[in-house]
Design a protein around this nucleic acid. Structure first.
Length: 552
DNA sequence: ATCCATAGCGCC
DNA sequence: AGGGCGCTATGGAT
């Protein structure tokens, strides 16, 4: 049973859809009535259909109501409007109300924000119409099953994102303060540099004979280094670390600590941690490949230095699980590469490459594999590539083909049906110009460079995007399993963190066994949902800890 | 005062 | 090295 939901003004309109997908009589409810209605109707396992989970679901969550299933029309539209799995003329792409489906049509990059969140609300009949168009587009596709899975996963992900924001990650402010103070000195009350940074800055100024130097300024720092006779092009730490000069040691230490202070210091904590919970703002599918982004809080980069502040309350535990070498495993399955699938079943895929005699060390295996995924052209990875190509010809052939398609400006598509954007108009202009009679060799060189850059993007897109699909299915299936678990006192395990290939579940210790089992079962299920019986193993590293810092 | 690009670095 | 991000500080432009 599908029920369309449209916020309007102070309330909510909703209507059930009949078999033909048309709304029956429309109900107009206040928000409170809506919350009660959802709570009661959930018993019937409906599927809620709304334009945008982020505008509706938080209100329900605040009232303590969660839903099992929903369709996020905006996220689904963004997928369908661009997917090469959807035949042209399906009607999904060219509805201006839902944003430009054709990326060539507007100058702005197509984004998931095609439908303005603040824009005029769409009424239930418009939502029902869009829902109908989407279902028709899927049905007309030659890959209806995959698209249905992708759309369901996208929508479930949107529910999870809202739930993560509502729950927050347990974060102990005094532990964080202690971690910071231990390396930076006490929190400066005036807001200036902490004592340790200040004294490092003084050593740097002395060492470079630059009494007024601001070490946070890259141009100033570069000038000061050069005035000491050091030949450097940038102030990046890998370049600085090559130098032999007494100032390098305090400088590198300064850079590391300054970053901690500015990115995840006291000011960050005041902004993002409330009542012992860190609440970043997740943006499902915010990345072109389908990965999530965040808007504020920087949850994509919670550095290892402060993970000790993520602490489970007494009586609770954190089940931290991440998918080991997810992208190579996904690639093996997509490419139906039997040899690579065999390596995946060994647990540590990189070690398996060593054991199979493909490369000599685990470090080489990792470099070679990442090189294949990202399109490395030189160095160590380049040298190791021939062996990988020979041993895993199906897998490497798939990414090579994606790269060549991108070099030609073609669109590539993930396993479940997310298609890449076309290159920007400036890219095409550059290519056209390089092919014209007036083009100089330098123009042609630049065009080739840009073509290869776009090829590296499309190469990675198919793998990163399919890995994101696997992760969404994992997350969605895990979410379903978790609602069946509870400890005495109705204490329930809950998802509190998700980052690309990693989840954290905060759970009462009484049920942490079941949670770990659920996390593993969901990973196995995700593999089946995407790749059927193809024998690729998706291995998880699971830790049960009281603080995130202790996760392996 | 505000916007924007760049450098640099953290995460996957 | 090579893909994808978000964020901060800086410094120039408006």
């Amino acid at each position: 049973m599908d029920i369309v939901v449209s916020p309007d003004g102070a309330g909510v309109s909703l209507a059930r859809l009949d078999r033909a997908g048309r709304p029956d009589s429309v109900m107009s409810l206040s928000v409170d009535q809506f919350v009660d209605h959802v709570r009661e109707t959930e018993q019937q396992d409906p599927r809620w259909v709304w334009a945008d989970t982020a505008t509706v679901y938080p209100r329900l969550l605040r009232a303590g109501v969660s839903v099992a299933r929903a369709v996020d029309l905006r996220l689904c539209h963004a997928v369908l409007a661009r997917s090469t799995y959807v035949p042209g003329g399906s009607g999904v792409a060219d509805d201006p109300q839902w944003g430009a489906g054709d990326p060539e049509a507007g100058e702005a990059e197509p984004s998931l924000l095609d439908l303005p969140v603040e824009g005029p609300a769409l009424d239930v009949s418009e939502l029902a119409a869009e829902h109908g168009r989407q279902q028709a587009a899927v049905a007309a596709s030659g890959h209806a099953g995959r698209l249905r899975l992708l759309l369901a996963a996208e929508s479930a992900g949107a529910l999870v994102a809202a739930e993560l924001a509502a729950v927050g990650l347990p974060f102990d402010e005094s532990t964080h303060d202690a971690l910071l103070s231990a390396v930076l000195g006490p929190q400066p009350l005036s807001g200036g540099r902490p004592a340790v940074l200040e004294s490092l800055a003084a050593r740097i100024r002395t060492g470079l004979s630059a009494p007024t130097l601001n070490p946070d300024s890259a141009p100033e720092l570069l000038r000061a280094l050069r005035s000491q006779g050091l030949s450097v092009e940038t102030t990046r730490k890998w370049e600085l670390s090559q130098l032999d000069h007494p100032v390098i040691e305090p400088l590198l230490e300064y850079k590391g600590l300054a970053r901690l202070h500015s990115a995840n210091g006291w000011a960050w904590m005041r902004s993002w941690v409330r009542e012992g919970r860190f609440r970043p703002d997740y943006v499902p599918s915010g990345v072109v490949t389908g990965r999530w982004a965040t808007r504020g809080g920087g949850a994509l980069q919670l550095p290892k230095q402060i993970r000790g502040a993520v602490v489970a309350p007494a009586g609770w535990e954190l089940v931290v699980a991440d998918a080991a070498q997810l992208e190579p495993r996904v690639l093996a399955a997509m490419a139906r590469d039997e040899a690579m699938a065999r390596a995946s079943r060994a647990g540590d895929l990189y070690q398996a490459l060593v054991d199979e005699g493909v490369v000599d060390t685990r470090a080489h295996a990792k470099v070679a594999m990442l090189g294949a995924l990202y399109g490395a052209t030189s160095g160590e990875a380049g040298r190791l590539m021939p062996r990988l190509l020979r041993t895993y010809s199906a897998a490497t052939g798939l990414v090579e083909a994606a790269a060549r398609a991108g070099e030609r400006g073609e669109v590539v598509t993930t396993w479940l049906g997310r298609s890449s954007p076309s290159p920007p108009e400036s890219w095409w202009e550059r290519q056209r110009w390089a092919g014209s009679s007036e083009a100089r060799p330098a123009d042609q060189q630049l065009a080739r460079t840009q073509a290869r850059e776009w090829g590296r993007f499309t190469r990675n897109f198919v793998v990163q995007g399919t890995a994101a699909e696997w992760a969404l299915c994992w997350l969605a299936d895990l979410r379903r399993r978790l609602v069946t678990l509870a400890a005495p006192g109705d204490r329930r395990p809950r998802l509190v963190y998700f980052l690309h290939d990693e989840v954290i579940v905060e759970t009462p210790t009484e049920v942490s066994d079941q949670v770990e089992e659920a996390v593993r079962a969901a990973a196995h299920r995700a593999g089946q949902l995407l790749f059927g019986s193809f024998p690729v193993e998706f291995v998880l590293d699971v830790s049960r800890v009281s603080t995130y810092a202790d996760a392996s």
